[in-house]
Design a binder for these strands. Structure first.
Length: 672
RNA sequence: GCCGCUGUAGCUCAGCAGGUAGAGCAGCUGAUUCGUAAUCAGCAGGUCGGGGGUUCAAAUCCCUCCAGCGGCUCCA
């Protein structure tokens, strides 16, 4: 059993951390924590040192374990492929990888490498840390340009750094690592991929081997089982089985086509959102999909987004762009009349379909399509209204996910400006000579920023607008009692934002909702309102989406529910099977009765046997299977089989009543 | 876009030391009328992703294009 926190352990001067832990009766530790820094167990205390053991089942320990397993991987590769040149092998969220310059390998090679890793692990070779001077390091790794690059980048002239050695294998590394290869027991190589050195297309291609590692076999098995489950739930596979959508790779690569079944789910989600929007004061509008290029120039999308847009020019010379975003359309509606401060906020929403050209290698399934529909909303408001509106949107977010998933496990990010690189953002600059304020995003400018009134180049960034807006987002989160992570540098260039992540049934986090404050576009479009002093004042826009996109959200729901949608979303709510042809009439009667109240019911009067029908319909994942025969016909009842294969006999009217209630309430669990 | 893998019937896949295609399911026809996870028989279905080349002969070998999948953020 892994040990719990064993309180304070002191390594006496001159003894190793391993000895100290042993003396304290601590077993299974793989490293030690001293003042927040991680150390090898072989570290010798320079003075009496208070340390904390790191166990492999803790987050820190797991990282170390996986990092060591990455070394083991490189070690095995070097034994099998002496020409290989390892680059980098870090731990990741659920395992590790190692990037190696070598000839492409196949699945068999992967198995051989894994086998060799087990061999090396069982040799239980000590993993030893050595401190070497820069010069020694460069000499040691003279054979490997990648390591040389790292040494030169990371070890200043005249300084030293560390390597880790296990037998013949040595790696330039900060560590810490497990004491010996024998600590690595439960690991598995998962896949072969490839990657450019430093993610730069112009640099050489490296083989990336992914793997994972756990403290024990049981956790590994669990992980692999989970992974397999995720594969089984792949939305592309289930969407195929349930006939929800198709892709036609020749006619429209990357564009989803919804079939009638898929459209049912999509439509239900849209209805759900439409209702919520009405409830929270978001008015639905509809905007064109194609615009003259002038609007894209004005919005700034051309400057930043042009390579991802579908553009065309007609024979009369007019150029058009298909919309990659909905905001310009909503702005066009908003600006049709001047607005008084009393009218704000104005909130428009639309299930807005956008088209974005994704490079061929980037498209895939519903998560990266080239066309998707955002449950988009743009609020136009005064500065002082941000907090209230953000809070209201947060309520919508909560209502949405607790309503659809039945529980809410969410995390929040507050993405802020990186004040060290103001040039990347649209901010105000204050002229130090004449006091004029000018707004600019320096990174997008070709010439130096000068004061528009006096021509001075002495301008200082003024973060006050950003600070206020960020403060308002923070306040909204605080007032809602939510915990959140603050991420400097993650803001959009036009304003700070809140991102919402939701956990699915497999424990994966998905970024869904986003709430963004925007100063940029209102400026570009010259949006204003008339304040109480009859003066023009600045409009602030909030962009928000709750599902994100219908496509992506559907994909996530498919995987979350493994296709077994709550009844209100299910394309087939009642599948009716007559016991034999004799009862076809009653089956049709049941179908008609249920359909009459809007239930998606289908009687199968085909010539197959009942058993076969039940078997085949399984992949369509109907909510309920109704078997009807003589008894049911006599008693005007149905034999109901739910998704857990529980059967019950109930009167037809009662069934209809209960089903309607289940649908009406968007119940996640079946009630029958 | 780049790298690797893959592309054979509606679906899942076999065939690939080169000798012009095969199975199961789905579909169609007929028989069967059946109480909760596949009744039986027959039929039909593919210019093997597109194009080019090598060859007497290409699904199979070579080139090229297209598409799908996994990666291309985690840094020693």
């Amino acid at each position: 059993m892994p040990q719990k926190d064993s309180g304070k352990i002191v390594a006496k001067k001159g003894s190793t951390f391993a000895e100290a832990l042993k003396a304290a009766g601590v077993k299974n530790a793989i490293a030690a924590l001293v003042d927040g820094a991680e150390y090898d167990l072989s570290t010798v205390a320079k003075q009496d040192t208070t340390l904390e053991p790191i166990f492999p089942d803790s987050p820190r320990g797991l990282k170390i374990l996986r990092h060591s397993t990455a070394h083991l991987l490189a070690h095995a590769v070097m034994e099998l492929f002496p020409d290989a040149r390892p680059n980098a092998g870090p731990p990741t969220d659920d395992g590790f990888y190692y990037d190696i310059d070598m000839k492409p390998i196949n699945q068999e090679d992967l198995e051989r490498i894994e086998e060799r890793m087990h061999q090396i692990a069982s040799r239980n070779i000590a993993v030893e840390r050595e401190n070497l001077s820069r010069k020694e390091l460069l000499k040691l790794f003279a054979w490997n340009q990648y390591k040389l690059d790292k040494i030169m980048e990371n070890v200043p002239e005249g300084e030293s750094s560390t390597v880790y050695r296990q037998g013949d294998f040595v790696d330039f590394c900060r560590g810490p690592h497990v004491p010996s290869t024998g600590y690595l027991k439960a690991f598995r190589l998962l896949s072969i991929a490839s990657t450019h050195y430093k993610a730069d297309e112009n640099r050489p291609m490296l083989v990336r081997i992914y793997g994972t590692s756990f403290p024990d076999e049981k956790s590994l098995k669990e992980f692999l089982k989970n992974r397999e489950e995720a594969l089984k739930r792949d939305h592309r596979k289930i969407a195929q089985e349930m006939d929800l959508l198709v892709f036609n790779s020749e006619r429209a690569p990357g564009f989803p086509f919804y079939t009638p079944n898929g459209m049912i789910i999509r439509q239900e989600l849209m209805n759900f959102m439409a209702r919520l929007n009405r409830q929270y004061g978001w008015e639905e509008v509809s905007t064109p999909h194609i615009y003259r290029d002038v609007i894209w120039k004005q919005s700034g999308h051309y400057a930043k987004y042009k390579p991802n847009m579908y553009l065309f020019t007609l024979s009369d010379g007019d150029s058009y762009g298909v919309k990659p975003m909905n905001c310009p359309g909503h702005i066009t509606i908003f600006e049709r009349t001047p607005k008084s401060y009393k009218e704000l906020p104005v909130k428009y929403c639309e299930p807005g379909t956008v088209y974005r050209y994704e490079k061929s290698g980037e498209v895939g399934g519903l998560t990266r399509p080239r066309m998707f529909t955002i449950d988009d909303g743009h609020g136009f408001m005064r500065f002082d209204q941000i907090v209230g509106e953000v809070r209201s949107i947060m309520e919508m977010v909560k209502a949405t996910f607790s309503g659809i998933l039945g529980h809410v496990d969410m995390t929040f990010d507050l993405s802020e400006i990186d004040k060290n690189s103001p040039e990347n953002y649209l901010i105000t600059y204050h002229c130090n000579r004449c006091g004029t304020d000018v707004e600019a995003r320096k990174a997008a400018m070709e010439e130096e920023l000068v004061c528009p009134s006096c021509g001075s180049t002495d301008l200082s960034p003024d973060f006050s607008t950003w600070d206020t807006a960020t403060g308002q987002l923070r306040q909204a989160l605080d007032e809602a009692g939510l915990e959140y992570a603050e991420n400097p540098g993650e803001a959009a260039f036009y304003g700070p934002k809140i991102d919402v992540h939701v956990k699915d049934a497999l424990g994966r986090m998905w970024q869904l909702s986003t709430i963004q404050v925007d100063f940029f576009m209102p400026t570009n479009f010259g949006l204003y309102y008339i304040n109480s002093e009859s003066k023009h004042d600045r409009i602030v826009m909030i962009h928000r989406a709750i599902f994100g996109s219908y496509e992506r959200f559907m994909a996530i729901l498919i995987e979350h529910f493994a296709g077994k949608f709550p009844t209100w979303l299910s394309p087939l709510q009642a599948y009716i099977v007559p016991v034999s042809e004799k009862f076809n009439d009653y089956a049709i009667e049941v179908e008609k009765f249920l359909k009459g109240s809007g239930i998606r019911a289908r009687a199968d009067t085909g010539t197959e046997t009942m058993n076969k029908k039940i078997k085949i319909i399984r992949q369509m994942r109907p909510s309920y299977i109704l078997v009807v025969g003589e008894r049911e016909e006599q008693g005007k009842s149905v034999s109901v089989r739910n998704r857990k294969d529980k059967t019950s006999v109930i009167s037809l009217e009662e069934f209809q009543k209960k089903l309607l209630k289940e649908i009406e309430e968007c119940r996640v669990e079946q009630t029958l």
